[in-house]
Structures are given as C-alpha cells and as structure tokens.
Amino acid sequence: MNLSSRLTFEPFRIWWTINKGPKMDLTKETSFSPQTASKIWKDRFPVRSDVIETICSEYGLSIEQVIRYKKEGE
C-alpha cells in the first residue's frame, strides 16, 4: 500500500457534513476546481499542499481536522 492510499480527508468530510451544505458548495467557497473537490470527497490523491492549506485557512481548521493518516488495516 502506498502512502497516498493511507491518507484520507475523512475528518474534513465529517466536519463539512456537520457544519456546511452540499458538497459542491466547496467549489464556490474556495474556488477549487470540480476536479479538486472530487479528489477531496473521494480520497483521490495526490492533492497539492496548498489545497490543504486553503481549507485550513478558509475554515479555521487544524490540519488534523482536514486530513489524517490511516493505519494499516483500516
């Protein structure tokens, strides 16, 4: 298993579901392309680090609230 398959945006998706609206509103609020938003919703990496930084900055989240590393077997 490569490193990128162990990374997940699950913390951000949970936060978004609780605090925001439809998934595609992310593109409106951040100016991310639909392709970038799709990568976030489907854990399709690689994703540029500035995307993660934008999410942290825009929504006042720590990196742990945006992305996490899954342990083997999860």
Results as ranks from 00 to 15, higher is better:
Lys71Gly: 03
Met1Ile: 13
Lys42Tyr: 15
Thr8Leu: 13
Pro34Gly: 02
Ser38Leu: 06
Ser31Val: 04
Leu26Pro: 00
Glu10Lys: 07
Ser31Met: 03
Gln65His: 13
Pro46Asn: 09
Gly73Trp: 05
Val51Trp: 02
Thr36Glu: 10
Arg48Cys: 15
Pro11His: 00
Ser31Ala: 05
Ser49Cys: 12
Lys23Pro: 08
Gly60Met: 08
Trp16Val: 09
Glu72Cys: 12
Gly60His: 08
Ile40Asn: 01
Pro22Thr: 08
Phe9Thr: 01
Trp15Asp: 02
Pro34Ser: 04
Lys71Ser: 11
Asn2Pro: 07
Tyr69Asp: 04
Thr27Trp: 01
Ser62Tyr: 12
Gln35Cys: 12
Glu29Lys: 13
Ser38Val: 00
Ser49Asn: 08
Asp43Phe: 00
Gly73Ser: 05
Lys42Gln: 12
Gln35Asn: 12
Phe32Ser: 03
Glu10Gly: 11
Val47Asn: 01
Ser5Met: 06
Met24Ile: 11
Ile55Ala: 00
Lys71Met: 14
Lys39Thr: 06
Lys42Asp: 06
Glu64Asp: 07
Gln35His: 05
Gln65Thr: 14
Thr8Cys: 08
Met1Pro: 04
Tyr59His: 06
Arg13Phe: 02
Ser33Asp: 09
Lys70Thr: 10
Glu72Phe: 05
Gln65Asn: 11
Gly21Gln: 14
Lys71Asp: 07
Thr17Gly: 13
Glu72Met: 08
Thr8His: 05
Val51Ala: 04
Phe9Asp: 01
Ile63Tyr: 09
Arg44Tyr: 14
Arg6His: 11
Glu72Val: 06
Ser33Pro: 01
Phe12Gly: 00
Asn2Lys: 11
Ser31Thr: 04
Ile67Glu: 00
Val47Pro: 02
Lys23Ala: 09
Lys71Ile: 11
Trp41Glu: 06
Thr30Tyr: 06
Thr27Gln: 10
Gly21Asp: 15
Asp50Ser: 14
Arg68Cys: 07
Leu7Trp: 00
Gly73Ile: 12
Ile14Glu: 15
Pro46Gln: 12
Val47Glu: 05
Val66Ser: 01
Ile55Thr: 01
Asn19Ile: 02
Glu58Ser: 15
Ala37Gln: 04
Phe32Asp: 04
Ile67Asn: 02
Lys28Ile: 11
Thr54Ala: 07
Ile14Lys: 10
Arg68Asp: 10
Gly21Arg: 15
Gly21Lys: 12
Thr27Phe: 01
Glu58Leu: 13
Ser31Tyr: 09
Ile67Lys: 00
Thr54Arg: 07
Ser33Glu: 07
Arg44Gly: 02
Ser57Asn: 09
Ser62Ile: 03
Ile55Lys: 01
Lys20His: 09
Arg68Ala: 02
Asn19His: 13
Tyr69Ala: 00
Trp16Glu: 03
Lys39Phe: 08
Lys39Ala: 15
Glu64Ile: 03
Asp50Val: 11
Ser5Arg: 04
Asp25Leu: 05
Lys28Trp: 10
Asp25Thr: 08
Ile18Cys: 14
Asn19Pro: 07
Thr30Phe: 01
Trp41Val: 06
Ser4Cys: 13
Thr36Lys: 03
Lys23Ile: 11
Asp43Cys: 03
Asp43Tyr: 00
Met1Trp: 15
